[in-house]
Write a protein that binds this DNA or RNA. Sequence first.
DNA 1: CGTCTCCAGGTTTTT
DNA 2: CCTGGAGACG
Length: 675
Amino acid sequence: MNIENLRKELNPEQFRAVTTIDGPLLIIAGAGSGKTRVITFRIAHMLDSGIAQNQILALTFTNKAAREMEERVKELTGKKLQNLTISTFHAFGVKILRKEINKIGWRENFSIYDDVDRNQLIKDCARELAFSADALDVYKVGNLFSNIKIGRWNWQSANDQYRTLFDLYQSGLKLYNAVDFDDLIGLPIKIFHEHPETLQKYRERYKYIMVDEFQDTSLQQYELMHLLADKNIAVVGDDDQSIYSWRGANYENILMFEKDYPNMQEIRLEQNYRSTETILEAANGVIAHNTNRKSKALWSGNGSGKPIEIYMPDNESAEADFISEMIQSISLSEKRNYDEFGVLIRANTLTRAIEESFLEHNIPYTVSGGTSFFQRKEIKDVISYLRVIANHDDDINLLRIINTPRRGIGRKTLEEISSVATKTGCSIWSAINTLIAKHNEFFSAEESTLSSKTIADLESFVSLILNQRSAILSGGGKNLAKKVKAMVDEVNYMDYLMCEYQKNEKAARYKFLNIDTLINSIEMWENNPDNFDTGLYSYLNRITLLSRDDMEDDGHKGKVNLMTIHASKGLEFPVVFIAGAEEGIIPHARCIEENDGNIEEERRLFYVAITRARHKLFISSCQKRRKISGIVECTPSPFLDEIPAHLVKYHEPQGEVSTEMAMDIIAQMKAKFST
DNA sequence: CGTCTCCAGGTTTTT
DNA sequence: CCTGGAGACG
């Protein structure tokens, strides 16, 4: 696209943002200001100006955003762009580690631990240090460790008593040749510090760097970016949409950027192309209550549109039915597809009532966020096999599968093996092999603490892993999906599931299906022509970073989108419902507690929710809600009062549907079916 | 020594 | 509803 076309397509600020390629650039992009468009046009423009694709690095926050951006750039340029790097920070970290991790003492078949694995490792370490079980909240300690690693907290402010545990945890990771999520950023930084020549290599390669959702980068991510980028760095963000501080997001990075790159230029995108003036004014009214922000004047030229409707249903199922019925009626009266609706909630637990109602009303929907597909037990089991096959020293995954399905290796045996492993400072896998060798050496002697039967069980486990390893790595890593299927058969995993869920056939079938989905997704992945490395390692490196969202191949076409507000960032819908707008939910009680009563981030979250809507916004707040403790009275979220009153209309529940209206709806349905 | 069964707890947001 | 853990049982 030539310059003149760009000038036509973009407003003056957007045009400047797209065409300013050299030097540091800070783009403050308000909600709905065409941010994604600017980024994709900017990349396309760079390519047009003759910059090589492999010199460009674009870092995003979620896989979804990365994928979308890549697709749009490809569409825009009509090129294949195989050497263009658009990825999340974490995926980029993996990419570096795969090449460089041997410089700091890991092997390149390292495992990546998710939270579940991490917590398991912490538990094991705690046991070794004889922490009393009730004094240890693994969940909390895991978060503590993460916060330490990403530089949000340090030991002075945190609890010093966990320091030895932390050290043991760290050495455990190294012993098992594993890294956790935070290491995916932290270890590349370590490598760059210790090996300046390696850093230099990457600096020379990535001459043009862009960071999306800059307000959500952590100190650690900022450091990585800062190490890599010397001059041509563009960051795009909006401090009002910073909603990840609990994960280390540090929107003061914006200030730091101004300091670290003093010759930077700043561009503000303040025209909102998304929402009606009513919706935007409501959002502005809410966010104005925050004191700690860059002031901005977001405006829209889209006309005032319809008022925001607030509804106060009796309880969560009434709320869910209200949403379902509203969706059905609007989709008929305004001829909208189901995928034009977004239903936003603060917490995953709130989806249940809504999902039930959707099912009852036959409304197709997708839920995004929530427990990752890869955290489901059955999927984790299969992946654990693959991880152990790739990396025998991965104790956490080995322990997960050594007796799943049952193969006679129980607690006592494992305690025995663990103690050998601890004493000699080796992994469980090598301990097992030591014990087997020892047993065979002193075949009849007392020396061996394990029975011959146990030894035989262990031996068959070891050969299972070794056989699968040579099968899966054979043939240059081709046909991974097929081999994984063979492996699942070989270990009789399906029988195990049947057995385990005898009483609940539905659950068993569901789990079966999940494994099928997994295998299909592997197949899709290896058949993707853009994918050059279809081996086991490459697969494993990739999947830990994926969430459930990234798995769905049938897409969201024709389905209502149900998701958390966090997951909705960057998206927009013509019609949006915000459900559960109650005190204690948004702002979330727990959050207020932890943040010393600072509700600004919760307000930003509410702001993000409002600004997802294009034409019409509904907000509902239940009068009562069922919680674990029983039914509790609710009060509406204080944020509702911050919406200027003249924009709001309270929704009155209609008694019965008037006959006239019912006839009308029936007529419309008939019309719909007859076409 | 391994397995089965029953019970309690759930953890806000995600890479 | 689902998972992980503790304790009984074979």
